[in-house]
Every structure is written in C-alpha cells, then in structure tokens.
Design a binder for these strands. Structure first.
Length: 212
DNA sequence: CACCAGGCAAGTA
DNA sequence: TACTTGCATGGT
C-alpha cells in the first residue's frame, strides 16, 4: 500500500505538476472558501469570494458583524447561501471568541486539539475542519473528499462502505506526515477527479493512473 | 430536461 | 447507529 500510494503521487505529480493549493491570498480566505465550497463547484465559490473582496468585505470582523441577509446575498453564487452565511458567522464567532481573529494564536494549538474544537462549530464537519487545518494553518492532516474516495475505490484500495476516517487513515498511515506532501497530494487527487475521474463519463482509459 | 459540484446537520427509526 | 432529507447556485 505504501509503495502504491507513493507511486500514485509520483505519477500524478509528473503528469499534472505542482497545483499551488489552496488558491487564495490569505489563510482567512482559505477558511472562508473551505466553508463556501461544501458540496459546491469551485467556480461558484470563486465568484462569491470575489464579490466579498470587491467590496472590501473579506475581513473577519466585517463578516461577523454583517447582517445575515446581506452576507447571504453576497455569497449567493456559492449556493446554500442562507445556511452558509450562518455557518460563516458561526465559525467567525468561534474564531473571535477563542483566538481574537489571530492566525498566529490559532496556529499555536496542537493539531488534534484544534481539530476537535473546529468540529464543535455548527457547520464545520470533518472535511472543512481538515481543509482549514491543512490549507490555512499548514497542519499535517490529510483532507478527504468525494474525489479521494472515488479514486481509491476505482483502484480497489478501499471498499464501498469506507467512511471518512477510514479513507483518511490510508493516507496518514502510509505517507510521510508532512503538510507539504498532504497539500500537494490532495490537490492532485482533485485535479485528477475533475479531469479524469468524474462521475459521468469518466475517462478511465486516459487517466494517468490507468493500469497502476 | 437531468445531473453534478472540493458537505453538513437535523430528523427519523 | 444507520439512513433520509433539506439546503441552492451555475455549468454541462
């Protein structure tokens, strides 16, 4: 398994190259994007983030104070806008109450502890928490998403009923626990998923991992 | 028209 | 614990 996963990584990296994740100008933008992208295409999220940026409202204090309806309107393109407005505010209240909107302070908390804290926020589940930990705070945790499981499934590395921790453990136990590796690997899996391993009309024959 | 996209929480049994 | 359902836009 260790050889296989590392082989996949090498193959993907050679084929696609560096992915430069997470596409954002700041750790805070990563946090916002992580919530907005829940079950939503990245293109729609980008529009929502841009609408906040253009109005100089992509700042934690402003979003926390903003009227929910106003926030919902700004992030409309990301879908589920009412519930996501609430979720952003839930996270920002947590971020202010516990860390005074300080990346430095929140970064000092150890991984397991902070993950547990994030999961207490209504609207932050495992993938969102892990995305924030890895891509905003550079903590060594592997992010699992629908692409990740689908790809492992197609290659027979997990069973259909594998759950989030089960899939995550495959990577955590077999790779060097390095945030840089986890960052690039997950990004490459998403790239592969988007280009070759999507649900409808997957291009399995052309996939860079075909036959691996 | 149907289906999908970088999920999550709440309700039900 | 294990399912089911609501949430919603924009692209294919």
């Amino acid at each position: 398994m260790k050889r296989k996963l590392n082989g996949f990584f090498q193959r993907l990296y050679s084929f696609f190259g560096k992915q430069y994740w997470w596409p954002a100008d700041s750790p805070f933008e990563v946090m916002v994007g992580a919530i907005l992208t829940q079950n939503t295409s990245w293109a729609n999220v980008e529009k929502a983030v841009l609408s906040l940026k253009n109005k100089k409202l992509l700042e934690p204090d402003k979003i926390l104070k903003m009227a929910p309806k106003k926030l919902a309107l700004l992030i409309k393109s990301a879908g589920y806008y009412n519930i996501k407005a609430k979720r952003l505010k839930n996270f920002l209240k947590f971020y202010f109450d516990n860390y005074n909107f300080s990346i430095k302070k929140i970064s000092q908390v150890n991984l397991k502890n902070l993950r547990k804290q994030l999961l207490t926020v209504n609207g932050i589940g495992r993938e969102t928490a892990d995305s924030i930990l890895l891509y905003a705070l550079n903590k060594p945790i592997f992010v699992v998403d629908s692409y990740t499981k689908r790809i492992l499934l197609r290659h027979g590395l997990v069973k259909e009923d594998a759950d989030y921790p089960g899939v995550q453990e495959i990577f955590m136990r077999n790779l060097k626990k390095d945030a840089g590796i986890f960052n690039e690997y997950h990004a490459l899996l998403v790239k592969l998923g988007k280009d070759y391993c999507h649900k409808k009309n997957p291009k399995c024959q052309e996939c860079p991992l075909h036959g691996q």
